[in-house]
Design a protein around this nucleic acid. Structure first.
Lengths: 254, 254
DNA sequence: ACACGGCACATTGTACACAACCGCATGCGC
DNA sequence: GCGCATGCGGTTGTGTACAATGTGCCGTGT
């Protein structure tokens, strides 16, 4: 219960997604990463005090990070009752995907217009990183990098509100993928990402948009939203029974 | 400096936009309203302590409200340097309007599909309130209600992420209108709103979308973004010189 | 006279202490 | 035996003290 990390004051945190930034960012990134990698299951309670001890900061910092996560939809903040990892219902997942189609189409068109050579190079680099993660079998990093690819693409569209919205959608999508993805197939084939970059570099808006829409089709075709639609509510209802701090033994005694 | 309001603990706050909710909401709504009504000019510094005294709450509450306003883009939060009322540049305004066209189109299509009779009735009621405000000459309330109309429409679209995004876009749009609107024309003709409701009620998606797009055209044609485009960067740069707590005397001595 | 450096003030960032609230368990009454 | 009231533990909500940072002013040196 009180296994405490280093107070992370001086930790450069070269690893993973932890941006070198304020303590907020570090805590935020760590929790977010833990959620994406399913080390924190949907429904898990996120106690402020416990997190504060773990990261060696006060509840103030934790609270801000949780607030930010709640704003992006990956954490649910219940007044007077604490925060839990969000467990998006099938309906919520559908809404997120609908919104994403909309936004990705617009982003693609804008990126065709505005993407610079440098940005395209960065995008190609990200696809490489993504491929590496999958080849290493690091599923969590793969999901995260794949999301960051789409976020980077949004930056190429040069529209601040869309970037912000995309960030929220990508976060939620990652959570949904982590929760609903069927089988062991790679959820976001990097080949499609590469083709997309090619189309953007060729300034072929029609092709790029078509590729993106097919990409979206592939993503949600890999999720078994339809099948679980009946049991979904139950899963959400009972998910708090499955709080497993340690992996394994995650079943509930009946 | 220390003219303090009632501690607002027991104030039912029947007036205006102050929803009956937590203290956060009240402070948030008041500051937001003040910004829309231009009682707080863009660039004005929002000191936590001063606001705390004014509203009779501690800095904790103020800080949350400011954070929320910053999320919606109407307040700029500079680390270690406090919060100021955002002063969107022409470029930022263009980005917001681009995003809004996108979102409003989608919302309109979805609203045609999903709007209930009850929601349509509420929308008509809001148009009435809006007309009343303009006939009373209450420009701030008019801008706010007009924004709330578009937000209500988003709710009819039944897509949570879009609603959240629309809330942010509407807030920023309101600020832009307050800052850039030329002349004294009503900025958002309620006639167009009424026609839009009619088209939605008739389930005529094509007509509704056309009306909405024309509505968007009208809104930004009323702003003189183009004219100020040359001086805009300068305006943003020098806006901190114009911090006028008292109206009048807002010019900078050269 | 101007520029640079240091000091003092003001404001924000953080942590902590106390208060309020919720959920649960125990025990009483029916 | 069942249902409800009440007390208790724990968690969150809020206020406040202290630390850290940024800003502006003033003095000094060139």
């Amino acid at each position: 219960m009180n296994e405490q990390l280093q107070p992370l004051k001086k930790q450069p945190r070269a690893g993973k997604a932890a941006r070198s930034g304020t303590q907020d960012d570090i805590v935020y990134a760590h929790i977010f990463e833990a959620i994406l990698e399913q080390r924190l299951a949907p429904g898990t309670k996120l106690s402020e005090e416990a997190l504060g001890e773990i990261f060696g900061v006060s509840r103030t910092i934790i609270r801000r990070a949780l607030s930010r996560l709640a704003h992006e939809g990956v954490v649910l903040l219940r007044p007077n009752r604490g925060a839990v990892v969000a467990s998006p219902s099938v309906e919520e997942a559908r809404q997120v995907f609908l919104a994403r189609r909309l936004v990705e189409r617009a982003i693609t068109e804008l990126a065709v217009q505005h993407a610079t050579a440098e940005q395209l190079a960065e995008l190609r680099q990200m696809v490489n990183d993504e491929r590496d993660s999958f080849s290493r079998g690091d599923r969590g990093a793969g999901i995260r990098l794949s999301g960051e690819f789409h976020l980077k693409l949004a930056e190429a569209a040069k529209n601040a509100p869309l970037i912000s919205f995309q960030r929220s959608l990508v976060s939620q999508t990652s959570l949904i993928i982590a929760q609903y993805e069927s089988g062991n197939r790679s959820h976001c084939s990097y080949d499609e990402h590469t083709q997309l970059i090619d189309a953007i570099e060729a300034r072929d808006a029609t092709l790029a948009v078509n590729l993106m829409m097919h990409h979206m089709d592939h993503i949600d075709s890999k999720l078994n939203l339809d099948e679980e639609s009946a049991s979904d509510d139950l899963h959400a209802v009972f998910s708090h029974l499955l709080q497993t701090k340690k992996p394994g033994r995650s079943s509930v005694k009946l």
